[in-house]
């Protein structure tokens, strides 16, 4: 337990330092950074990391596994970007022709963690014809506004394609 907390704090500090480095490139001679910025970054990252790691790391260190981050990157560059392009062409088509058949449907994805639901809801919002409206926090059911209702009581496969599978692999 103590080991876990030390690990969480260290990871948070490193994350903060990494973000600080991103913001201060090209400030000096050490590769891209100056010595002042590096020292200030270490001090600030330590303070902020120690204060905030309890909020950032809720229960366990699942997300510290780099494999999940690689999967997430593959997801964003592959199926996500592709269906986002499709979504925009779809909206373009509906803007020009005005053909809509909207409705709010209910789907129950098999996801348990907060992060998983958030990722899934955001994916739904940015992909073809769907927009998440409400979440039932007890049963994890999602209410989705669908611009072109094909099925009155759909499964999550019909609304969101393969996203549920991807999100489960990344976040659970």
């Amino acid at each position: 337990m103590l080991m876990n907390r030390v690990l969480a704090a260290t990871l948070t500090v490193f994350l903060c330092f990494f973000v600080y480095l991103l913001f201060t490139t090209a400030s000096g001679a050490y590769i891209l950074w100056s010595l002042d910025e590096l020292i200030a970054g270490i001090i600030l990252a330590t303070i902020i990391g120690l204060v905030s790691f309890k909020r950032l790391v809720k229960r366990d260190l699942r997300m510290a596994n780099p494999l999940r981050w690689i999967l997430a990157l593959a997801y964003f560059l592959g199926p996500f970007l592709f269906s986002m392009a499709k979504a925009n062409l779809d909206v373009a088509y509906r803007v020009i022709t005005g053909k809509i058949k909207p409705g709010i449907v209910k789907i129950s994805p098999d996801l348990k963690t907060d992060l998983g639901i958030t990722l899934f809801a955001n994916s739904i919002t940015l992909t073809p014809g769907t927009l998440s409206v409400d979440v039932d926090e007890e049963t994890n059911e999602l209410y989705v506004h669908w611009i072109n209702v094909k099925e009155l009581h759909p499964t999550s496969q019909q609304v969101a394609g393969s996203f549920e599978k991807w999100v489960r692999r990344i976040a659970e």
């Binding site: 709010i104 449907v105 209410y143 009155l152």
Partner: peptide, 13 residues
């Protein structure tokens, strides 16, 4: 209310 909606599950709930 969603205009021209064919179904509204959330309202039922």
């Amino acid at each position: 209310k969603p205009a021209r909606a064919v179904i509204d599950e959330l309202e039922k709930k």
